[in-house]
Design a protein around this nucleic acid. Structure first.
Ligand SMILES: [Mn+2]
Ligand SMILES: [Mn+2]
Ligand SMILES: [Zn+2]
Ligand SMILES: [Zn+2]
Lengths: 149, 149
DNA sequence: CCCACTGTTGCAACTGGTTGCAACAGGATG
DNA sequence: CATCCTGTTGCAACCAGTTGCAACAGTGGG
């Protein structure tokens, strides 16, 4: 969970027998200026702003590579679509309100109870960055709401 | 969370101004013989086994209607795809091992700590049927594994 | 039994994303 | 600088699922 080192990325790719290509340069450029959550299609869009010839499959395949290298991490939004986190955020999960669409981070601290009890009771190790809890936020709780869960 | 009453479904639809159609009959027939989790495309497949002319959008739209009536409930598998639960199972979440692909139910009991603390700390009410915790199961935990999270 | 109202269907276009494959191009080597 | 190896790209087909819309068909009322 250390800060992403974009400068050394080309060398780390080559060290693994992988390559530093113009297409990867564009995506890394976009990512290095991105904070928080982004979907694949948003990243594609931003790459196309720089290089209109960008191909979807290339972007998605490169994201896979970058995830293996630990440069990004994906989770799933409430609708199940992949959402990428650019490091170096602390590992965290998400809360999502199905009524108002709001989204909040779930700190390792808050998830600690669950994480501990699953580890103790089952030996199951939780991937916190993949945890998305859907429900209804405090503000929406009393109100008649969209059943978009 | 009571047992699904497929017999009275036609009347309950009509009572809401909705209709009991041949297409819905096929899907309900399939659902009434289904236990556990199913994806939409699996249901489509099974409907087509009975009525080959079955149209995808009709199935998915009908599932939405049935979910509003409480006959099914959807969650999201580890890859984010929708997965339907046919009642009358107790409300529960899921654990999914990213290494071996295994899947286990997460009882309300086990999730209680998290549910309570989110309610207390934030007023957030968790939709347990939508909770899918991804990670690594006890068996896979030591072993070198697929990073399919 | 027929009518009219309106919910539902079929269809076609579209979205986001994935896959197999042949052509291409990093980059290590000499 | 030329060569070769193999990772990567572009493309086209495909997959699961969604949407807008015109035609269709349950259903309750007369
Ligand atoms: Mn959902
Ligand atoms: Mn995932
Ligand atoms: Zn809310
Ligand atoms: Zn496992």
């Amino acid at each position: 969970m250390t800060a992403p080192d974009w400068q050394s990325l080309p060398d780390r790719l080559r060290a693994r027998g992988l390559r530093w290509t113009p297409q990867r340069r564009v995506l890394v450029d976009v990512l290095s200026r991105t904070r928080g959550h982004v979907t694949g299609s948003q990243l594609l869009e931003r790459c196309r702003a720089i290089e209109p010839a960008t191909i979807p499959s290339t972007v998605y395949r490169t994201l896979d590579v970058l995830e293996e290298l630990g440069m990004v991490r994906h989770g799933h939004a409430a609708d199940g679509r992949e959402e990428f986190h650019v490091l170096p955020e602390a590992d965290h999960g998400h809360l999502h309100c199905g009524a108002c669409g709001g989204s909040w981070d779930l700190s390792a601290n808050e998830a600690d109870g669950l994480v501990r009890s699953l580890r103790a009771g089952r030996g199951f190790v939780v991937d916190l960055s993949h945890v998305t809890i859907v429900g209804r936020c405090g503000a929406c709780c009393g109100e008649p709401g969209t059943e978009g869960w």
